[in-house]
Amino acid sequence: METARPVPLWRLSAIGRGRVEAMRAKPWLGTLSRIVASAETKAVEAAAILAAHLGIPMNVVEEMGENDRSSTGFLEPAAFEAAADRFFAEPEASWNGWERAVDASRRIVRAVDGALRDHDPERPILFVGHGAVGSLLKASLAGRPISRVEDQPAGGGNIFAFRLSNRQLLCDWTPMEEFEGVRG
């Protein structure tokens, strides 16, 4: 962890980079037509590795960013987990100045919808972002309330899939280097 840097500027760790590089061997990646990343450094680095490998375009969408938690800066892991519990448990409230979960969710869903507006739903696309981005998007797609239940397993680096044409979830969180794609 780069505790002296703002969270959006954290870089991929050696482990994270290795996990992304391991994905390059997965056949499902070859079906992608485009990659969209949030503007956080980790997300851009991961997306760039895959886009370069595949020779496909990569777009950065600022609005797809993680919930704004700059008011507190870095929190030690135990404190962060307690704060994240509150973020998800009280989505209408701002914990210590953090962006509210309901606001972050609306922003992220708008960003994903915008990225898909002129995109052929038959051409798979990969969205790359931080943890809460996927958790909030997943809850919205499933029509379920914002909850930590939708969060990816500890450690991050997971994938879920949804059908582009109707936004139906196709699978739950899976470690990215183990994901084998989905049919449907």
Rank of each mutant, 00 (worst) to 15 (best):
T41E: 14
A22S: 15
E66L: 07
L54C: 09
L54F: 06
E62A: 14
A83T: 04
E99R: 03
I35E: 08
D68C: 02
T31Q: 10
E92G: 04
S71R: 08
L50P: 10
G16S: 13
T41S: 12
A46W: 09
G18E: 10
W95Q: 04
A104D: 00
A47D: 12
G55W: 04
P77S: 13
L12P: 07
P57A: 07
L9E: 14
G55H: 05
A37G: 08
R86T: 14
L9F: 10
A25M: 04
A39Q: 13
D103P: 00
A101T: 00
T41H: 09
L12K: 13
F80G: 03
W95N: 02
A51N: 12
G65L: 04
F88I: 01
P91M: 10
V60E: 08
A84H: 01
A14K: 08
R5Q: 11
R106N: 02
R86L: 14
A93W: 03
W28Q: 00
W98A: 01
N96T: 00
P57E: 10
P27L: 02
P27T: 00
A104E: 00
L9V: 03
L29D: 07
A83V: 03
A43Q: 10
V36H: 13
R34C: 09
S105V: 05
G30S: 13
V44A: 06
E92Y: 06
R19Q: 15
W28H: 02
L50V: 11
R69K: 08
F74Y: 15
W10R: 14
G73C: 12
S38N: 04
F88T: 01
A51C: 07
I35M: 13
A84F: 00
R69F: 00
L50I: 11
W10E: 06
V36C: 11
I49K: 11
E92L: 06
P6V: 01
R100W: 05
E40Y: 06
A37I: 10
V61G: 03
R17P: 03
K42Q: 14
E21F: 01
F87C: 00
A25V: 07
A47V: 11
L32P: 04
R24H: 06
V44N: 04
A4T: 14
A14F: 08
S13E: 08
F87G: 01
S38D: 05
L54G: 07
T72M: 09
W95I: 05
N67P: 08
V7T: 11
I108T: 06
E40H: 10
A48K: 12
L75T: 04
A51Y: 05
V61C: 11
R106M: 04
E76L: 12
L12A: 12
S33K: 15
V109W: 12
L29W: 09
A84V: 02
A89C: 09
R106C: 02
W98P: 00
R17N: 07
P77A: 12
G73L: 10
A25D: 10
T41V: 14
